[in-house]
Amino acid sequence: MSRESSGTLQYTSVGRKVFNIANALFLFLVSMAVLIPLLIVIVTSLSPDSVVAREGYVLIPQGITFENYTKIFKSGYMSAFRNSIIVTISSTLVSMVLTVVMGYAMAQKDLIGKKFLIRFVVATMVLDAGIIPFYLVVKNLGMIDSYLSLIIPTAISTYNLILMKNYMSSIPTSLIEAARIDGCSELGILFRIVIPVSIPIIAAVTLFYTVSHWNNYLHVVMFINDSSKYTLQVLLRQLIFQSESAISSASALNNFKMAVMVMTMIPVLILYPFIQRYFISGIMLGSIKE
């Protein structure tokens, strides 16, 4: 196996070599299927207007300009960017605290009412009341037009919670029981044993939350009235769709739109390799058990 820690890479048969090459080739093709459209996006965003107007989308560069990027930077990007960072960081923090704590509690083997609790939670995935009743609740809590409305009401994702709970319940009970007997408090167990062992899932779920909070658009539009509080996603969508309106005389060619898209993706893309490290290499459950 190719696990980084695994020391079993001693012999390779011919069949294995063939498989490795075929596999690499296949994954190369899959990556290409992603990279070509991505390349089109990037090249288009860097192409001058005259080229883009003629071709629509460009794959092979014919002249490069950074004009669109500088334009976006000057269009109030930074303040919207700041808003986005504030909202994303704080809501991911809140989300993670709630999800880890609740996931841990739900993972207890003989928890009172566990079955009911899980159904109580999963039922909400199926039964979605729609935006208007949700809006009324948020409104009655006085959160409209404040960032709280973007942090609290969407704090828990049932999907992530169940993944978290599922993972934590696979942690050997003996490990937790031992700590409990040693007089460790529940929070102590959580912090000293469960969280360190759960780093891969915590990394993955953090990523899920960060991305979904970063990409959040609908709730910002619904819950925020003051446009100086709008986040990046809203600003960029405005820039993109301005020209789609029937009467607008704004003209945004594809190069500008693609540049806008790249600018929304970059911050979270940068974050990815840092988080990836934690879920790709993982933690040795075996070594902790000893």
Binding site: Y135, L218, V221, M222, V234, R237, Q238, F241, S245
Partner: peptide, 11 residues
């Protein structure tokens, strides 16, 4: 944003 105007107004 103008692409979400109707949704917001409806809410």
């Amino acid at each position: 944003p103008q692409s979400s105007y109707n949704d917001k107004l409806n809410v």
